[in-house]
Amino acid sequence: MLSKVFDHLEEALITFLMGAATLIIFVAVVHRYLSGFDIPVVQDFVLSINMAWAQELCIIMFVWMAKFGAAYGVRTGIHVGVDVLINKLSTPWRNKFIVFGLLAGALFTAVVGTLGATFVWDNGAHYAFYSWFGGNMDGLYEGPTTPDLEWRTWTVYSAIPLGSYLMCTRFLQVAVQFIKTGELPHHDHGHVDGLDDEDTAEVK
């Protein structure tokens, strides 16, 4: 039950990031275009709005989308590999390789998550947590900020440990499911929702 809620939250987050980033860039472009028109008062108003942060925010949103989307992608089986060789093997051997691949994914994401967590910690999270909860701040450094929004980069970089650990969890889940049921999530590249015979019949 809880995991279902969590799944939906994950989907909602990446859906939101995709849509919102598109809107932000759209608005920024329209804004820049409008500021090119020499209409008194209106131009001054348009120019008084600062959209310089739009690109930076878009990048941050997409990187977050990428990290969490990659975890979602494990669940939907979208990460492709070279399976030509193992498909030629007998089923028991093929299954061993599949489990090996999933565990390798879990290992990689766990290592990367830990590296990321260490980096985020040293890059300002340490300072932030100690200043919130009153630790010993000697020799600690508050960490850099992003240039436009002036957000702490460690908050932005947190996508790496969070996304990677989530991805690791997904790899393990898929591995357990595969061992139990022999089923793998599979992404069908040829399938399109909502296209059916009705559409095809219209072409004559």
Partner: peptide
Amino acid sequence: MLTGMPISISLGLTVLTFLFTMTNVPLE
């Protein structure tokens, strides 16, 4: 790659193996 694991993961693991064993580039 030939084990069929995702290409992204094989790239990543290659890099990690290399960094852990053969060079002094900091892992951070």
